[in-house]
Design a protein around this nucleic acid. Sequence first.
DNA 1: TTAATATGTCGATTATCGTCGACATATGGA
DNA 2: TCCATATGTCGACGATAATCGACATATTAA
Lengths: 115, 115
Amino acid sequence: MDITTTVKSLGALAQESRLAAFRLLVRRGDVGMAAGEIARELSIPHNTMSSHLAILTNAGLINSRRESRSIIYSIDFGGTRELLSFLMQDCCQGQPEICAPVLDSVLPGCCAPNC
Amino acid sequence: MDITTTVKSLGALAQESRLAAFRLLVRRGDVGMAAGEIARELSIPHNTMSSHLAILTNAGLINSRRESRSIIYSIDFGGTRELLSFLMQDCCQGQPEICAPVLDSVLPGCCAPNC
DNA sequence: TTAATATGTCGATTATCGTCGACATATGGA
DNA sequence: TCCATATGTCGACGATAATCGACATATTAA
């Protein structure tokens, strides 16, 4: 993952409505959620939400598929993983002092294979 | 860490010059780097860099201290850790499928105490 | 085919951001 | 004190972003 992509992804998440939508989708996993449902849940006009979803998609953080009349958005595991890996590796290789505590706080609730 | 703070931190990193400065500082750790040195290294006018550093500071990602004529900026371990923890925990609790591979890619090069 | 539902696109407005010249402040040395 | 160095602040400009009404497209059912 290069700098330009990272900046784009961070920018996509650096907005309240988009961060909220992203977090909603993380919890839904592959099941996803229809565009209108997301808009209603977050109390945002459907067209505003539409442009936010486009930005998240363009940043590689979410995907979409059509299902009958609805378009279902779901998290893009690959893109999300890449962003987190980039940030974590950047910090870990520079200063383990940052990363170690993060790992500590995450590992207990996570199914990391080698722990 | 609440949503507003997270959005602010992500926004601070969602800009090429600021992300570059942040990465530079991560690698310097507590030693840090003078404002002018950062500006020179990244070929950015000192006043432009100054405002970028102010934004990163305001987001809690870096700190500063005066040393004679220079002002030395260094990474804020606490704030940086909080942001990464928030993002990782959000994803891990929602979908371990995202987090586990990230941990895998980070653990080998990192001194996580419990691994 | 007509209507209802679901979503996306366009265009205009307002707000915020990035940049940089000019000036202000702080520090240390001659 | 006077000057050079280091950094920050202010103000203005152009660029980009967020929002939302109005319209366009796609899908399904009657």
